[in-house]
Design a protein around this nucleic acid. Sequence first.
DNA 1: CGGTATCCACAAGGATACTG
DNA 2: CAGTATCCTTGTGGATACCG
Lengths: 129, 129
Amino acid sequence: MREPLRADMFDELCPSSLNPVRFGDKWAALIIRCLEDGPRRFSELRVPLSRVTPKVLTQSLRALERDGLITRSVLDARATLHVEYELTALGRSMLEPMAVACAWVEQHWDQLLNAREAYDRAIRFDHAG
Amino acid sequence: MREPLRADMFDELCPSSLNPVRFGDKWAALIIRCLEDGPRRFSELRVPLSRVTPKVLTQSLRALERDGLITRSVLDARATLHVEYELTALGRSMLEPMAVACAWVEQHWDQLLNAREAYDRAIRFDHAG
DNA sequence: CGGTATCCACAAGGATACTG
DNA sequence: CAGTATCCTTGTGGATACCG
């Protein structure tokens, strides 16, 4: 049995939300990471991506499917509807540049945060004086 | 004398516009590449980025500055106004993950394009039938 | 030269309710 | 279960004109 999806980095307050590097639309990178360990159902994806409405989640999934990064499969349609999403080889190959970008963010995010704070402080200072 | 900036990849029809990986806002990656070979003036940046209005270019530059990725320097203010933008060490360090992502896109962009075409064709087919 | 100011268009995302 | 439909809000970017 596969592990349930963790929701740490899906928190809007997660430092990675600082990330200036984006993959696809707003949720694409998170979706890809959700699929990293194997296929997932729509409802499974909705758990960690609870902040994403079904409409938007569908949109993002379609866009990823369109780019050949994931596949959508309808399984066992006779019983209750069962749909699984899974990374393609192409989608899986994207994990590498994503990891590189994530590592960069992780290594530099305190610098980024400090820079932002300093910039915002300087701006406030400008406006005050 | 430094070389003038080329505008190839700034064409909206450039294959790299397919890129699902984005750095910062719409123009951030291009700006960073413009600064790769040294500092540039506002008006110099406007040449290759001719599709970007001054307002938006300023916005993007401010965002990059805020994140500590570039610096803004006012030089020789007594004569005509002279402002230069330059990559910081932090900004320069971003070139590496950017290169990785660009290489991935370059290697896979035909697959991406094919996938999109196939997807769009299938959708049309669905609707027709 | 290096921007701002003002107004505007459109796409992306979201809320809520409903369906095969 | 796996979405759609509808309507709405926001954010991003753009057009145009003007300023120190």
